[in-house]
Amino acid sequence: MDFKDLPDEELWLQMQDDLYDGLKDEVVEETKEALARGYSPTEVLAKGLVAGMDIVGVDFRDGVLFVPEVLMAANAMKAGMEILRPLLTQTGAPRIGTMVIGTVKGDIHDIGKNLVSMMMEGAGFEVINLGVNNDADKFVAAVKEHNADILGMSALLTTTMPYMKVVIQALKDEGLRDKVFVMVGGAPVSEAFAEEIEADAYGRDAATAVDIAKRYMAWKNAQRAAT
């Protein structure tokens, strides 16, 4: 049966399955089909792409899926996002917060960081992805320019992760530390390290990072409302 013949609920399931299997072309076609049926870009994002990626996240955590399968699924989600992104901008879909993200100086390993970036975008954040090998000046400038709610820093190497502390010090020096929520992540990073360098949170994986960011924004918005 062609996916165009599927009822809506089954189309979402098919989209999630295809995303899980990393079938980029199918996910693109199904994204277009859902839009053609009159669903908003936000609905397509949530019911198709993010829902599919959530299952991938759970199965990765449980050891059912491994990194290559997650990357294939992420690439499929990215392809779907490329269709939705301009539409989300056009329709003025509400953003729940702004995040600046990048790997720290000396570190070019961006797979995890890109996954977090995409999942954050999927969750409704505006994400400014600075790419790899960023020094403190670049992080600070981007936080200022975009008035970021959250700064995410990533490192894969034990030799580069101490640089996160340099960035946090630079934020303090610029009087920005209390204005931005700092999240750190990457294979060698731990909860204890995050505490040691005075980051606000450690994201063990992309799903956890999104969850923490959403909870932080809910808290921040409640604080704003109360004042």
């Binding site: 491994f66 290559p68 399968e69 990357l71 294939m72 690439n75 961006d110 797979i111 790899v132």
Partner: peptide
């Protein structure tokens, strides 16, 4: 180990920054 035997298209994802 990186799954490149099954997904050769991931080569770019893994090695683009090297």
């Amino acid at each position: 180990g990186l799954g490149l035997d099954r997904f050769p298209e991931l080569k770019e994802t893994y090695f683009a920054n090297y």
